[in-house]
Amino acid sequence: MKVLVTVKEVAEADDDFAIEGTDIAESDLEYDLNEWDDYAVEAAVQLAEAGIADEVVTVTIGPERADETIRMALAKGADRAVRVWDDAFEGGFADVAAKVSTIEAVVEAEDPDLVLGGVQAADTGFGATGVALAERIGFEHAAVVNDLEVDADADVAHVHRELEGGVEELTDVDLPAVLTVQTGLNEPRYASLRGIRQAQRKEIDAKDLADLGLTAEDVESALAITSMYEPESESDAEIIEGGASETAGRLAEVLRDKGVGA
């Protein structure tokens, strides 16, 4: 069985950041592997270790910079990676359908039995790519999976979907399927030194749209970000100023006033 893992490099804003145009200034962003995708990679690698998956391939839509993040996934045990980038993505905001068109082409080339992705990307938070992809490629799907058992003989995944309020839905999903992975599904490993060394030799196959038989039109986005701003705080919070002991002293007063710890 082959597992394809969608992996995104996400950006996190520094404590101090400036907005330039419709995005946060590049210099105020730190990049990392999306937390949810880290759990998806771990799930795939565990399937390989259990002898259920023969190969784990990652796919990323992202610029060359993302190679560093992709290497982390390779160091944790993914076998190889595909990274797609194209001028067509530059500057715009790819909507879910544009990403799905791109990943669809990779699915056609790779022919996986199971696709794992994250519930959401931490930076843009759409929470939609996996389910939309499943619909496009005709796979079954389940969103927000926090427990996974693959029965390869029966071609079925037994999953829990984590609903609101501490309730889990138990679902059987026929393969091939796309599952979106929730944090807590497993314990993502740290990359070992050996893993990191091996990752250097693993292949990151960089492709553009033409390589996938796509054109810029196929990834045209229906969405455009027209402004970005810091939300006006509706809070009238008292911000306690000063050093640690000063602020702790004032907070202690507040707490005692409320009868806490008195």
């Binding site: 969405l223 970000i225 970005m228």
Partner: peptide, 16 residues
Amino acid sequence: REMYGSKVETTVDVDG
């Protein structure tokens, strides 16, 4: 909608 862990808000124009 929000982005970057609720640190910023964005306005998004939708085609069609």
